[in-house]
Amino acid sequence: MTTLSVASKILRALITVFLLVSFVFVVLRLSGDPAIQMLGVDADPRALDAFRERWGLDRPIWDQYVSYLWNIFQGDFGHSFIGNRPATEVVAERLPKTLWLMGLTTIFTFGIGIPAGVYAALHRNTAVDRLTMGLTVASFSLPNFVVGIVLIMLFGVVLRVLPTAGSETWLHYILPVATMATADAAIFARFSRSAMLEVLSAPFMRTARAKGLLWTEAVRRHALPNASIPIVTVGGIYVGRQIAAATITENVFAWPGIGKLLVASVQNRDLAVVQCIVILVGVTMVVTNLLVDLAYGWLDPRTRSGESK
């Protein structure tokens, strides 16, 4: 991958983030009034006007937009309407909780999903394969909020062995992680199985066996590396979207992370915080995709510019 191609990817990434921020900026301002959200519907009209004036919301939207971009350029992402704290500080305070949730979910997702899919592929059309695939269909067919509430009812209400909201102890992690990892691991199991099946039927696998390699050796040296390319692609997108994907689960389990903050901030029209989170999610997506692109070069020599000639 040349410097030019990396630079072009980074430029594309910046344009993506810029468009994302611009879109969110306009939509948030056109779809609700922060003054009413913060002061309440009963608020005196003069109090609402004073709030708008104080936060510059009475200025034309283009004027607000130009100021906003200029401030971002200077590293100022604005202040939350709640407590007048820097939006970056509000978001940074919540980020570790989401990263923990993301990290554990990713470990369980990859740790269960990928081996299960590979195992099913290696035992295609056996009872284990059918059972695994049956479970995966059931798992990813259920939306997260349904799985979450079922787990709450079972472990919180009926058995009363696990807490259902918050993040105070390690026990609080179990249900949210299980909720997110259930569907995600199922997706990776199915994807890994497909990728493996495709590779297992490829001519180079027959060649490898013909060369005298043991089946296990052929799988380890040829099948797994080749199957990993599409899995890494999906894995990159998966990790990138995890911050946003945690939104539903965080709200069901009152998990004090970015997802819950995002929902509350949208409801409150806490503009600076929403925009800060959107930029964070956008940048995460872009960076992980960039890393995936770079990883291709390492995993698949054919994609290395200048080396595939």
């Binding site: 509430i149 709450i152 919180g156 259902t164 909201a165 069901v252 819950k260």
Partner: peptide, 18 residues
């Protein structure tokens, strides 16, 4: 005062004693 946005989670938490 703890924020639990989801109604089902609030009810479950009350029933479970949380």
């Amino acid at each position: 005062y703890k924020v639990v946005p989801e109604t089902a989670a609030r009810i479950a938490g009350l029933i479970s004693g949380e």
